[in-house]
Amino acid sequence: MNNEINKKAKKFQGKIFLFFVLVFLSFSAFSQNQNLFEEGKELYKNGKYQQAINAWMEILETGEHSAELYFNLGNAQYKLNHIGPSVYYYEKALQLSPNDADIKNNLAYAENARIDAIEPLPKTVFAKWYENVSTIFTFEGWAILAVTFSVFFVILFLFYYFAFTERRKRLFFVSSMGVGLLLITSLTMAFLVYGDNSKNRPAIIFSSEIEVKTEPSMGSNVAFTLHEGTKVQIAAQDGNWYRITLADGKDGWIPATDLKQL
């Protein structure tokens, strides 16, 4: 009996020890990454852009990432006139912080430095409206909004159900219906944005210049030429080749090594 209790006690102590070790290692890794981030900022201020990039890349290698980290990487790459990587990291930052004005502004500067000027296909009024509304929140944001509205809907409906006066019943009923419409809207937007994200496979051209082929082989005809920093959509894959599409409707095949997926 005592031996069994001692075994359980030792097992419990082992778990507690392991927990504190993991907490300590996590704290140490966080402190190290914070030091690397500050070191990178200091190097950037002194004009040592490549060294700043090296410091920040060490943080990415640990699995840590943030909009601020990607934003700074984009700035350093832009200072070195690396248009492809700068656009890539600004786009990565924008994925994590889609409404950040500084990221959008610097991304626009980097995009203006690209060689390729691609005019997107004209959009309908509804498509423009949907694009503006859908980017207000991420999929997670729309989902959280839907859950919030569902809670308010239930509360208002309960108030309506238990209200004693006709005036209050009318007020809570109208309010619950209004919140119900918002719930349906946010839920619909969450599904639509999730569907868009599932189909969305953006990538950035990293090669200084690449010939886009009509077929997934080096011997096929050249459809057109692209340069670094151009944003494309991956439509299909055939071995080490990607079929890409542009905003203007053009498409073709390029080697997978010539681009980097976002």
Rank of each mutant, 00 (worst) to 15 (best):
G84F: 08
N81V: 03
I115S: 11
K92P: 10
Q77H: 09
P120Q: 08
I118D: 07
I83S: 05
E91Q: 11
L121R: 11
Y88F: 14
D116T: 01
A93E: 13
K79F: 08
P120D: 08
N81W: 04
T124K: 14
A101T: 02
K104M: 09
A117M: 06
Y78F: 04
K79R: 15
V125D: 10
N112R: 04
P122L: 07
T124Y: 14
A127S: 15
K123Y: 12
T124R: 14
N81M: 03
L96Y: 13
V87N: 00
K104N: 11
I83W: 07
L96F: 12
P98V: 05
V87M: 02
K79Q: 14
A110L: 02
K79T: 09
A76Y: 09
P122Y: 07
A113N: 06
E119P: 00
D100A: 08
A101I: 06
K92G: 11
Y109R: 05
T124I: 14
I83V: 13
N75L: 14
A113R: 09
E111Q: 04
I115N: 08
N105D: 07
P122T: 05
G84T: 06
Y109Q: 07
N112F: 01
I103W: 02
L80V: 09
P98H: 07
N75W: 13
E119Y: 05
P120E: 03
A127V: 14
N112P: 00
N81H: 05
D116F: 02
T124D: 15
A117F: 10
A117E: 09
T124N: 15
Y89G: 00
L96W: 13
A108S: 02
P122G: 09
D102E: 11
K123L: 14
A110T: 02
A110P: 01
A110G: 02
N105H: 08
N112A: 05
V87C: 03
Q95W: 08
G84D: 11
D102L: 06
T124S: 15
E111C: 01
N105V: 04
P120K: 02
A108W: 00
S86Q: 07
L107E: 00
Y89E: 06
N81G: 02
D116H: 04
N112L: 02
N112T: 03
A108K: 00
Q95G: 10
Y90L: 03
R114C: 03
A93H: 08
Y78I: 02
A93W: 12
N105L: 09
